[in-house]
Amino acid sequence: MFRNRTVILVSFLTTATGFLAGFWPLAVFGVLLATVSGHWVTAILLGFLLDLAYGAPGWLHYIYFPLTALAVVGSVLRVVIVGKLRKRGGDTL
């Protein structure tokens, strides 16, 4: 539980720092961190907030929320990959 809360806190702080410091890759990294660690709710929420703040100009307008979509796709991929690794008997992530 402590580890989960730590990861969520680090993801949120990374995203907030990237946004406030004016460095978008760091903000997106926070979303990816939450996605890869399996906290899909946090990842989707952070992605959604970033999409509201950044907008989605140009062709991304058709996706509406590109970073949120990235978090959703990343979460699904993680579930699939972890499932396949478990089938093979690999270490848990």
Binding site: I44, F48, F65, T68, V79, V80
Partner: peptide, 21 residues
């Protein structure tokens, strides 16, 4: 369980997307 997990992720995402859009 995995299928349910995937369906839950998609369901939440779709609801959020519709509301947010």
């Amino acid at each position: 369980q995995k299928t349910k997990h995937i369906a839950l992720v998609f369901g939440v995402g779709a609801l959020l997307f519709a509301a947010a859009a």
